[in-house]
């Protein structure tokens, strides 16, 4: 089991994380905006997360913490 924690208020909506997730579960939350007015990235289907940390590796703003 693994999970990722997004510091949503720091996300700048650059979407880089969505391009590297092997499970394609990192998506942009288009239903809401963070303080900066960006759609924050996030994971809905956390059960599919394998904790590879690819999303966190490419994130320029250290938004993502990964547990495994």
């Amino acid at each position: 089991m693994a999970r990722v924690i997004f510091d949503e208020e720091r996300c700048k909506g650059c979407k880089l994380c969505t391009t590297v997730c092997p499970k394609k579960i990192v998506i942009m939350d288009t239903d809401r905006l963070n303080q900066k007015g960006f759609h924050p990235a996030g994971v809905k289907e956390m059960d599919k997360c394998i904790g590879c940390a690819f999303c966190a590796t490419i994130c320029p703003d250290c938004v993502i913490e990964v547990e495994k």
Binding site: R3, A53, A56, D61, E65, E67, K68
Partner: peptide
Amino acid sequence: MATVFKKPHALRDVPL
């Protein structure tokens, strides 16, 4: 579960 990836200590906890 253990943390496997987090912000490094040498990087201050401030938005870039």
